[in-house]
Structures are given as C-alpha cells and as structure tokens.
C-alpha cells in the first residue's frame, strides 16, 4: 500500500474517534488545552504504529494509544497523580463546597456540576474506567484492553469508583443542601 493510501486509511480509522479521544484526554488531564496537545501527540503515535493495527475495533485501539499519551503527560506534569495507592483518602478529603471561600465556590458552581467535580477528583485509575464505561459506554472487555488490566480488575475498579462517588462529600453537600431547600 502506498504511503498516501495508508494515510487516507489512517484518517478514516482514527479521525472518527477524535471526540472519544478528546473526552478521555480531557478527563485524564482535567484541562482542555493539555488534552488537545495530548490528542495530537496520540494521533502522531498512532500513525507511526498504524501498521500494527490489523483492523478490528478502531476505538479501543486508538483509545489505548491516547491513554498511554495521557499517562506520559501525567508522568511529566503531575507525577503524584499516578502514584500507586487506592486513593480513597483523596476523594474522602475532597473539599466540601461549603468550606470554600466564596470565589472558589463560585468557580466550582460555574464550571461544572458537583457530580462532574467529584468524578474529576477521583484518582486517575478509577476515573478512567468510569469515564470509559459511563461516557464512552465501552464493554468491560474493551476497557480491559484500553487500560491493560484483567476484566476482574475492571469490575473491581468500577465498583470502587462508584462507591467513592456515592460517598463523596461533594455529592453529599449538594444533596443536603437541596434536601434543606425542600424543607
């Protein structure tokens, strides 16, 4: 196959996955500008290794590369985020919106919902499986492939991610507040 035909096929395979790639990168880097850089780098890597793609599920294949690019970015920029540990402290100690100063509280309220905020606070290992499952709607076996873990681990991380969300003070604060308003 000529390099040109190769390039055309690459664009057909990869470009339709750009939204999924950006969404994953945006959730893992938690920043739009960095997510764009990471996705561009992932596209360049994917092109380089395109001869290793033998057809099949383009989304899982490409998201695997995007995830690797995200982790490389995290290693360079936020190494503490990918430190091992189950991260339960991080979420349980997440700031209660009631404790923030008014400016911070306004920033939070304006930018996203409390639930989105709680997901963004999840340790990256839980955040990625949750995003792949709930927003990308990937089946377990594809999540296992993208994150490179056994299916059993996909299930346990999802369960943990959901449990952390349900206990998150960010959510409880909102729930308590709205419960108070109804009274």
């Amino acid at each position: 196959m000529s390099a040109r035909a190769d390039r055309t096929r690459f664009e057909e395979v990869v470009l339709p996955q750009l939204h999924a790639a950006y969404n994953l990168a945006r959730w893992l880097t938690r920043n739009g500008h960095d997510a764009e850089d990471v996705v561009q780098e992932a596209c360049e890597r994917a092109l380089k290794y395109f001869d290793a793609f033998r057809g099949g599920d383009a989304k899982a294949w490409f998201l695997t590369i995007v995830r690797h690019a995200c982790y490389d970015w995290l290693k360079r920029n936020r190494p503490s985020e990918i430190a091992p540990g189950d991260g339960s402290e991080a979420i349980e100690n997440a700031a209660d919106p009631a404790m923030l100063n008014p400016e911070q509280a306004m920033l939070r309220d304006a930018s996203s919902s409390a639930l989105a905020e709680a997901i963004a606070e999840l340790p990256v290992g839980y955040r990625e499986v949750l995003i792949l499952r709930e927003l990308e709607e990937l089946p377990y076996k594809d999540i296992a492939r993208v994150v490179d873990i056994p299916i059993g681990t996909v299930m346990s991380r999802l369960a943990r991610a959901r449990a952390l969300l349900q206990r998150s003070p960010l959510l409880h604060a909102i729930r308590d507040r709205s419960a108070g308003a109804e009274r």
Partner: peptide
C-alpha cells in the same frame, strides 16, 4: 449532569 467533552473543531 456530567459533560462529554467533544473535540473542538480547531483540534480536528
């Protein structure tokens, strides 16, 4: 409640 971030046109 949770946003799905679509790739901005400029990224494409």
């Amino acid at each position: 409640e949770v946003p799905y971030y679509k790739a901005p046109p400029a990224l494409h």
